[in-house]
C-alpha cells in the first residue's frame, strides 16, 4: 500500500497550470509599467493622511481597548477620501457605498473600469484603507497597489470589468467587506476577488519568517504569499505559473480546503477576502504575511523605513500581470 501510495503520489502532482502564452508579451508590458516611485509616493501620502487624522472613537468598542491599545489608534476617513480622489483623477466612475448598521458605519470606496466583452463579469481588486497607527505596510502598501493597478490597467482593454475597491474597517473584523458581500446577495457578478493586505515588508535573514504548527513557510521572509481556497485553486496555480514565466520573485502558495473555514486555517482568513470565501466566491489573498514577519504589525513601528521598495514593486508587477490575465487583457 505504501509503495502504491508513493508511486501515486509521485504522479499525483498535476503539471503546473498551462498559461495562454500568447498573452505573455502584453502581460510583461503591463507589469513593466508599475512604477516604484509612484507606489512609494502613494504610501507616503497615505501615511501622512493617517498621521493627520484624529483616531476613531474607541470608546464605542467597549472595554477591549485596554487589552488592545491599537483599537484607539485606528484612522480611516482621510485615507478613504484620498483613495476616492486618486481614482477620480483616473476618470473612473467612483462611488462610496455607505452602510450604517449597529454601532459602526462603513464607507467603502468603489471605482469601476468596464470590460468590453463580458462587462457583467467583475474582477474585484481590493485593499482596506483603515489602519492602526501610521501603518505603512498594513495597509498603505495594499491601497497604493490598488491605486497603481488602477492607473496602469485602465490604459488597456479587458474582457471583464475591473472593480477597484477600498474596504473600510477591516481592522475591526472585516466590517466593510462583510457588508459588501452581504449586499451582493446571490449575485454571481463578482467572478474573482484579488485582495491585497500588506505587501512591502521583506527580509532575507534566515529565521525572519515566522510560522505556526501546520503552516510551514520558507525561513527567509523574502517571498510573496498567494493564498486561496479550493474554489480559487486554479487562480493560485496561475499566479505561480505567471511568476515562473516572468521569474519575478519568490512566491509561496497556500491553498485551504473547501471554503477555507477550518480552525487550522484561521490565519489565512484574516483579511477582506475572508467574507468572499465564506460566501463561496473565488478570492485570492496576496500578502507579505504581515504578522508572520513584520515587527511593526499593528504597532507604532509600522513605518516606511521597514519597507523594501524594489520587492514591493515586484509584488505589484506580478499582481498586475495576474489580474490582466484573469480579466482577459486584449492585445
Amino acid at each position: 500500500m505504501l509503495l502504491a501510495a508513493a508511486l501515486l503520489g509521485a504522479s499525483a502532482c498535476t503539471p503546473v497550470t498551462p498559461l495562454d502564452e500568447s498573452k505573455l508579451p502584453v502581460l510583461e508590458e503591463i507589469a513593466s509599467q508599475i512604477d516604484q516611485d509612484r507606489l512609494m509616493g502613494t504610501v507616503a501620502d497615505l501615511v501622512a493622511e493617517h498621521k493627520s487624522e484624529k483616531p476613531f472613537d474607541c470608546e464605542l468598542l467597549g472595554p477591549n481597548t485596554s487589552v488592545y491599545p491599537e483599537l484607539c489608534n485606528l484612522t480611516h476617513e482621510k485615507a478613504g477620501e484620498y483613495m476616492q480622489r486618486r481614482l477620480e483623477q483616473l476618470d473612473l466612475p467612483v462611488r462610496r457605498e455607505v452602510v450604517a448598521k449597529d454601532l459602526l458605519t462603513v464607507s467603502n470606496v468603489i471605482a469601476e473600469y468596464k470590460g468590453v466583452k463580458y462587462p457583467e463579469e467583475v474582477i474585484l481588486i481590493s485593499a482596506h484603507f483603515d489602519v492602526y497607527y501610521a501603518a505603512a505596510d498594513d495597509n498603505s502598501t495594499g491601497v497604493a497597489a490598488v491605486l497603481e493597478l488602477a492607473r496602469v490597467l485602465s490604459q488597456y482593454k479587458f474582457d471583464r470589468t475591473l472593480r477597484f475597491v477600498g474596504f473600510d474597517l477591516e481592522e475591526l473584523g472585516y466590517v466593510g467587506s462583510h457588508r459588501y458581500v452581504e449586499s451582493l446577495g446571490s449575485s454571481k457578478e463578482v467572478v474573482l476577488t484579488v485582495n491585497f493586505d500588506s505587501l512591502g515588508y521583506y527580509n532575507d535573514t534566515p529565521g525572519s519568517q515566522q510560522t505556526s504548527l501546520g503552516l510551514p513557510a520558507p525561513s527567509e521572509a523574502n517571498f510573496l504569499a498567494v493564498i486561496g481556497n479550493d474554489n480559487s485553486l486554479e487562480r493560485v496555480n496561475e499566479f505561480m505559473a505567471l511568476n515562473e514565466s516572468f521569474d519575478t520573485m519568490r512566491t509561496f502558495g497556500v491553498v485551504a480546503s473547501g471554503l477555507g473555514n477550518n480552525p487550522g486555517n484561521a490565519p489565512l482568513l484574516r483579511s477582506d477576502h475572508g467574507p468572499f470565501w465564506l460566501r463561496g466566491h473565488e478570492a485570492v489573498f496576496i500578502s507579505d504575511t504581515a504578522y508572520f514577519r513584520n515587527p511593526g504589525y499593528h504597532n507604532e513601528k509600522d513605518t516606511m523605513d521597514l519597507l523594501n521598495p524594489p520587492m514591493f514593486r515586484k509584488a505589484v508587477q506580478l499582481s498586475a500581470a495576474a489580474i490582466a490575465y484573469w480579466a482577459g487583457v486584449q492585445p
Binding site: A217, V236, F252, G253, V255, A256, N262
Partner: peptide
C-alpha cells in the same frame, strides 16, 4: 480528505 496545501 481535506488538507492545507503549500505550493513552492
Amino acid at each position: 480528505g481535506e488538507r492545507l496545501s503549500f505550493l513552492s
